[in-house]
């Protein structure tokens, strides 16, 4: 729709007035907090102490020497890789190889893991993974495999949280891919059918090139989404055993609200925001500003 351009005095400030409430909220809950973060990261602010001293870059230097910071950063990237692979693989298989009536039924069911809260997802998975009465161990016992400690052994715990996160997030990736498939013009498929391409060549020669951008966006959404994972893992493992599943978000939470070390948490937030913004920048660039529905 073309925009109405008002030259009269009366209308000059009206658009700003209409935007004002939204801007006030966004400025006070996003812009100002980020600036405040940056300031706090140069101080020694804690949750309790009121007077603040300037520490310059000391928080950042301490952070770079903190092996738990590096461990949680490493865990985050490992988590994105493992869980993201599950998510993408499941979503691609489901979106491309199931069609017709089954696809319609699946796109109804698939909304459940996505609609319910992360705490609910964590309970669903706790029931499966707990060692005494867990569903996974019950399933394994049918095949005479002895029970595993899914949430206690570090490597298994990491695999468990990746699977649980995949269960929650692959529906989202599926919906994005499916929307992409809907947008492919029908005639292209018809023409390639007439040209006697078989199904595999239709998928790889027609779908994939058109879908490349959507794939790229899916990967970036996986990056962005998994980077900020918190609740599900917090509730399943609490970052344990021995911080084996502690992600960067949990590191910040621990610094701020358990050790009460706000300044350290701010420094960590600033560092990870810089890393995170690369993914966001790429996402916005590919979407060419139209970052919304």
């Amino acid at each position: 729709m073309s925009l109405i351009n008002y030259k009269t005095e009366k209308f000059r400030i009206l658009p700003y007035i209409l935007l004002l409430p939204a801007l006030i909220f966004i400025l006070s809950f996003y812009v100002a907090p980020l600036i405040y973060h940056l300031i706090l990261s140069f101080t020694d602010r804690t949750l309790i102490k009121k007077e603040i001293n300037l520490m310059y870059l000391k928080n950042y230097l301490l952070l770079l020497k903190d092996r738990f910071f590096w461990k949680s950063l490493f865990n985050t990237f490992l988590f994105i890789t493992i869980s993201g692979t599950f998510q993408l693989a499941l979503a691609v298989l489901t979106a491309f190889f199931i069609r017709g009536k089954t696809a319609r039924i699946i796109s109804v069911i698939i909304l459940v893991p996505w609609a319910i809260s992360e705490i609910s997802v964590s309970i669903v998975w706790r029931l499966l993974l707990t060692d005494g009465t867990g569903g996974l161990n019950s399933l394994l016992s049918i095949f005479k495999i002895k029970p595993q400690l899914w949430l206690v052994k570090p490597a298994l715990a990491f695999l468990s949280i990746s699977l649980a996160q995949a269960w929650r997030l692959f529906p989202l990736i599926y919906l994005i891919l499916k929307t992409g498939i809907y947008t492919i013009p029908k005639d292209i498929i018809d023409i390639s059918r007439i040209e006697c391409l078989n199904r595999r060549s239709i998928i790889f020669k027609v779908y994939v090139p058109i879908m490349r951008k959507i794939f790229l966006l899916s990967v970036l959404i996986i990056l962005i989404r998994n980077f900020r994972a918190f609740t599900l893992i917090f509730s399943l493992t609490g970052g344990g055993p021995l911080r084996a599943t502690e992600l960067i978000t949990m590191f910040i939470y621990r610094e701020a609200f358990i050790y009460h070390n706000i300044a350290r948490a701010s420094a960590a937030s600033v560092v990870i925001l810089l890393i995170y913004s690369i993914a966001v920048y790429l996402y916005l660039k590919i979407k060419k500003g139209r970052a919304f529905a």
């Binding site: 907090p33 900020r228 918190f230 978000t249 910040i252 925001l273």
Partner: peptide, 10 residues
């Protein structure tokens, strides 16, 4: 895009 863990502290 801002994760709530970041803006919730300030």
């Amino acid at each position: 895009f801002i994760p709530s863990i970041i803006n919730i502290i300030p």
